[in-house]
Write a protein that binds this DNA or RNA. Structure first.
Lengths: 183, 183
DNA sequence: ATTTGCCTACCTACTAAAAGGTAGGTACAT
DNA sequence: ATGTACCTACCTTTTAGTAGGTAGGCAAAT
């Protein structure tokens, strides 16, 4: 991994651990054993670093979507949920859930990119649900996008809420979502 | 309203607008037309101010719960949801949803208080659901607490996600929750 | 009745640390 | 000899927080 990639990965981790406004270039440079100015060499501003984190997420998301393309709807849904599994293990929240509360402190570029991510996730889950219903493996009321909104909000907030309640609540939420859809 | 109460109300608004780590004592003192040091007179540290915000939320929550006590389950659920309505109108997120992503930057006192709030909300919604099911007005699979987890996560994240998608999505989510329970 | 003293609710003026960011230099690889 | 990937050494602003002062209200002591 290049230094640049390591910086972005570390920033991503810090943002999802404690929020965009609670980490500094010093946190990154110290952790990496380089100097403050060297981080600025790759990312002149904090905004540019944050944007890189989001763009990376976008790439990873597209990769996951196209990798899952051939799977059955239920498998695809479980793959979607597994994104949050990995976050939960490290007690991180998701990127959208970390940045949305601080949205009003972020510049336009970042807001646009974040909106794209949110829209893409919703689109993907909507697609999975539609296909699942057509195939008869999923049952749910309302249209697929409304159902996707419910599921995405469940997943997003589960990482946040279960920081405060019990960790087991995370898997309770996951199992309930699947059960609701398949029974 | 006393100066002290105005400070707490303003801090609450700022936290839910842009996050705990993106507002300063200067934001408060300027808005109120007093000096930085005067805010410190009431709240020696930022943590103590944040704690006061959470305690205020706890009081408001208990007030709402006891005020709603005699209402029917469906009305009580709608009263619970109306908390988020008021936030959505001002494009604010909820306190738990604002602080949870930044939890690792907060001290123990605050974490404990926030856990209490989260637990109390869950308890209340669980109660409403149980009673609604017993009375035959609500239908849902799984136990009441699991269902409460789903609904609370829906509401918490709806404020965050709909900052990024469309505002109408917020009422779509609300209506879907009610419809799922009552059909 | 007036003085004395204390409390509340601010103020001025400051500090130390941390923040994001910059200018310009260097060492090595191509 | 040019670019890449760092570095040293700054700067400015903002941050949370503090020390100590003051003006007015109240209340007991003289």
């Amino acid at each position: 991994m290049t230094t640049r990639d390591r910086i972005v990965a570390l920033a991503d981790d810090l943002i999802r651990d404690r929020g965009i406004n609670a980490f500094s270039f010093a946190d990154i440079s110290e952790e990496m054993g380089i100097k403050n100015a060297s981080v600025h060499y790759y990312f002149p501003t904090k905004s540019s670093l944050c944007l890189a984190v989001i763009k990376r997420q976008q790439v990873a998301l597209e990769e996951m979507i196209s990798l899952a393309k051939k799977s059955a709807p239920l498998d695809r849904l479980e793959q979607y949920m597994s994104i949050y599994d990995r976050s939960k293990e490290a007690d991180r929240v998701c990127l959208v859930g970390s940045l949305a509360p601080d949205l009003h402190t972020l510049n336009e570029d970042i807001r646009v990119a974040l909106k794209e991510v949110a829209a893409r996730i919703l689109e993907w889950v909507t697609e999975i649900l539609e296909e699942g219903r057509d195939e008869g493996v999923f049952r749910f009321g309302g249209n697929a996008r409304s159902r996707a909104l419910l599921i995405v909000t469940n997943m997003l907030a589960s990482l946040q809420l279960t920081r405060l309640t019990k960790s087991e609540d995370f898997s309770i939420i996951k199992k309930s979502i699947i059960k609701d859809l398949t029974s």
